[in-house]
Write a protein that binds this DNA or RNA. Structure first.
Lengths: 334, 334
DNA sequence: CTGTTAGCGCGTTCAA
DNA sequence: TTGAACGCGCTAACAG
């Protein structure tokens, strides 16, 4: 392991001043072509690499963006992360991914780290747990641009990219009603999060609009899992509140429902209509094929990044809220 | 947006020297208790945050670790990333995730970024495309600890965490043979990568051991996808080389196989035995339930992190290769 | 076109 | 127990 080579090392070796080296490396026009070539050749030869800590310390620039999500290994977030990472890379940015594990405390610590490392900007989808917003406010205080996507923080003024959860859930509910289902249950996440609250509102308003009396919003506070899906459906089916259709907020819950429905011999779509959020790419394998509400991960990533980039580049601080439309993909399950 | 507060600001305000502030903030014992309390109170009050760029510039320390994977939105990697992020966070490290998109060029650029930002260590699972190792060598030259997991670089001396791909594929093959299958095909990835090469070797050696003549290794060079799985199975089933069993290297391929098999009316396990790598958590829903080879993501993450941590902390440079045992989970598909 | 100087924020001497 | 001075690697302002 050799010691890291610096501009001063190069300067000393070439008998020029290190500021000249600095200029040459950054293609500053005010430097002799020959000198520049010599410097660049030497740098390449000795594998010189800029020390970004020094550059950033001077406050000149920073191309690192932080991304905070509740869970990395959740298909929706994994897709968005993947897309964002590519877009960012292509534009010369680097993305660091952080995982809050749905915990406010972790989110807070992550924010501190981000401030300490002077990231150029932050993209966040908040934890279930997060009800305070002081940590996001801190970010703003330090002048670090902030953009939310999907799960947003309501009481912070910042650009947000959201999904039309209210409308799409209303559409899904309406579709079920028109198909003749009348006892529709909604299995979803905590009402604290905008995403789930809006979905539920869309569901409830539509029931009211069509004067349906059966109303059953089941709020899952734990992590969405196949197990939970099974349990919930078991309870639901054996209760007096048995539904004839379900809208599920997560693929995992849906898989649990499917497993348990199979065990109980429940026929879909005859006895139970089913619509789920999420891409069931494998839907062809299930019988019946499941009707899904699909979110546009690529578009979400693209829009989110553009908003942040705009803030970083132009110091723009408009309070834009962009809505990305999810799509109801009709299949056999209802 | 207020300007960032520094130790000098605190010093000026409190009429003491900034070096005293620095000591107080780090709980250096050689500072008056009262002075320290005043400093800490002021710092908290004004939300002082260390500038890590300055700290790192001095070469003192760095708690940021870089992680490079081919794809973030691939369940195996997503799981490992998630685990690693948690372990790291818990131990006071921060993980930045980078995605090579299976491209050598991107991997190389990422490595440069990592060097420039002076990360404390790097964890890598290499791209399919990567056949050179100069960029990893560069990392070593800069004294940045490096650990590989799963997909490793063969001609670099570094700690590696691998899966027993040879043995487990041999076991799977043997199992199929003992179940009476004799025309076993192997659908897997490019032979360039250790993972797929070893699997194929285990497959081939076992066929030889049992003197089976049918041998059919199908090397998928594109991304594993459901579509590709469908295509491959369609070709395979309609060819003269029709197998009576398949070992698949990826869940996506397997899903494609299942879809196409259903379309063609192929009966599993009667007409076709099937074993796949990957966790099919939803296996209960498929009929029949699929026999899987499951990798221990948690153990892989844990071991990988420990190796890296050891290198960072103790400047340890032993060339350890740890093998994590995958498990064959027998179900109905063979 | 090139060199000099200063300073980003911090921690670590060495001196008092 | 505290202060003064220095330097990490780099860029920018100024001077030549």
């Amino acid at each position: 392991m050799n010691k890291r080579i610096t501009i001063k090392d190069i300067a000393k070796e070439l008998n020029i001043h290190h500021s000249t080296v600095s200029r040459a490396l950054r293609n500053d026009p005010r430097v002799n072509e020959k000198t520049r070539d010599v410097v660049l050749a030497y740098a390449r030869e000795h594998e010189y690499q800029t020390n970004m800590n020094a550059v950033q310390l001077r406050g000149t620039s920073n191309n690192a963006i932080a991304l905070i999500v509740p869970n990395i290994n959740h298909s929706f977030f994994a897709d968005v992360i993947s897309q964002l990472t590519n877009i960012a890379f292509q534009k010369g940015y680097v993305i660091s991914v952080f995982q809050s594990n749905e915990k406010y405390e972790q989110e807070k610590e992550i924010i501190n780290t981000i401030i300490q490392h002077n990231f150029a900007g932050v993209i966040v989808s908040i934890a279930k747990d997060t009800q305070k917003s002081d940590h996001f406010r801190l970010l703003k205080k330090f002048g670090i641009p902030l953009v939310f996507f999907d799960r947003v923080c309501e009481d912070i003024i910042a650009p947000k990219v959201i999904v039309n959860n209210y409308d799409i859930t209303a559409s899904a509910t309406e579709w079920l009603i028109k198909k003749g289902y009348s006892r529709i249950a909604h299995i979803t996440g905590t009402n604290i999060i905008n995403v789930f609250r809006n979905r539920d509102q869309g569901y409830q308003d539509t029931l009211n609009k069509f004067n349906l009396v059966y109303k059953n919003s089941i709020e899952i506070k734990k992590d969405f899992s196949i197990e939970i899906g099974k349990e919930v459906f078991q309870k639901l089916w054996s209760s007096t509140q048995r539904p004839d259709a379900i809208i599920s907020s997560s693929v995992n819950l849906t898989l649990g429902i499917l497993v348990q429905a199979k065990i109980l011999g429940v026929k879909i779509p005859e006895e139970l209509g089913l619509i789920t959020f999420g891409n069931m790419m494998t839907s062809e394998i299930y019988q019946p094929q499941i009707t899904t509400i699909e979110q546009q991960e690529t578009e979400i990533a693209q829009t989110t990044f553009e908003l942040l980039e705009d803030m970083i580049a132009n110091n723009n601080n408009q309070i834009i809220v962009k809505e990305i439309k999810a799509q109801l993909i009709l299949r056999e399950s209802c």
